[in-house]
């Protein structure tokens, strides 16, 4: 029974790409521990990993690079999965949480909470998830409007307008309270620097819940891709499936935004690459998103440390630089794949 379970869960032909990607992810995570903007060289960091090393290197590797690597893995996982789910449920390959205003919703909710006087760390996760949920519902509401749902680019345009609205509201809040503005301005850009393991622990329960929901809805969601009638015929309830997916996306995006700020394009690039490797079936896509998301976020984070050392770039800036060309590529492809 137990031996049969993984085989039933893991679709055929995925073992090899999954193994390759997991290997690549391990290498990138190792690189993330070895490389940085500071004076701790890869050699000194290796000494730490071997159990020795000097005091400064131990601190930099253990207290700075390790937390941001793990936080980056969680953020990448959450955003990659959220993108894949949102794209499947809206049947739109461009449905990216960052592009559609889900991240902006989470960011706005946090800014609102800060403005109302909440201290930054305590409420942030729940508030960001509530904001992401509201953003999700708006997006899907728009997607179900007649005519819009069938046109991916119009949906993205609507999402861009929605994001701009939320960004304007966030700016308005920041203008009202300039002192709070300075504190959260850097957070609004998105970064992994200075994040602690405690931040990661705060979002682990909701990540676990989202993963459980995903496990539950993967199969009905794949059936939904064949059309509502087919899915109903197979005994699934489309409305409930959609509701659960939206909940999972909100949990994932809210968690990622709460610890790293809004980070765009990960939810676009990761499912795009996963589909290119494994085909359009959502169950296969989701499997590959597991290693691909962390791979992209940690990779971008390493670049953010190296490009302008001794300072650092914002992670959000780098993912946008990597992701925007992919968006243009997808849009310019002769025919958008319909999901």
């Amino acid at each position: 029974m137990i031996a049969a379970l993984p085989r039933r869960l893991l679709p055929e032909g995925l073992a090899l790409p999954l193994a390759g990607l997991t290997l690549a992810l391990s290498l990138v995570m190792l690189a993330s521990l070895l490389l940085g903007a500071g004076e701790v060289t890869p050699t000194r960091a290796l000494a730490v990993l071997a159990g020795g090393g000097d005091d400064e290197a131990r601190f930099v590797v253990g207290s700075l690079r390790l937390p941001r690597t793990l936080v980056g893995a969680a953020v990448g996982l959450a955003l990659g999965m959220a993108g894949a789910l949102l794209q499947a449920v809206s049947r739109n390959p461009l449905a990216e949480p960052g592009l559609l205003g889900v991240s902006a919703g989470a960011a706005f909710a946090v800014a609102l909470a800060l403005w109302l006087g909440a201290s930054a760390t305590t409420l942030r996760v729940a508030v960001a998830q509530a904001g992401a949920l509201a953003g999700c519902l708006c997006v899907l509401g728009v997607a179900r409007l007649r005519g819009l749902g069938n046109d991916p680019i119009r949906l993205v345009l609507a999402g861009a307008a929605f994001s701009a609205l939320l960004a304007a509201l966030t700016s308005l809040l920041l203008l009202f309270d300039q002192r709070a503005a300075d504190e959260i301005r850097f957070w609004v850009i998105g970064s992994l620097s200075g994040r602690r393991l405690a931040d990661l622990l705060a979002v682990l329960p909701s990540l676990a819940l989202a993963l459980a929901i995903t496990l539950l809805v993967a199969r009905p969601l794949a059936a939904l891709a064949l059309g509502e009638r087919v899915a109903s015929g197979l005994g699934h309830r489309p409305g409930r499936v959609r509701g659960l997916v939206v909940l999972a996306v909100a949990l994932l995006v809210g968690a990622a935004t709460a610890i790293a700020g809004p980070i765009a394009f990960v939810g676009l690039v990761v499912p795009f690459a996963a589909r290119a490797l494994a085909g359009p079936d959502i169950r296969r896509t989701l499997w590959l998103c597991l290693p691909l998301g962390p791979l992209m976020v940690i990779g971008a984070d390493i670049l953010s440390r190296l490009l302008v050392a001794p300072s650092e770039l914002s992670l959000g800036v780098l993912t946008a630089l990597c992701g925007a060309p992919v968006l243009i590529l997808v849009v310019r492809a002769r025919r958008l794949p319909s999901l």
Partner: peptide
């Protein structure tokens, strides 16, 4: 002022 200094370089 500088860009945000990497936390790894605070000793500077």
């Amino acid at each position: 002022h500088s860009d945000p200094l990497s936390l790894e370089n605070l000793s500077r």
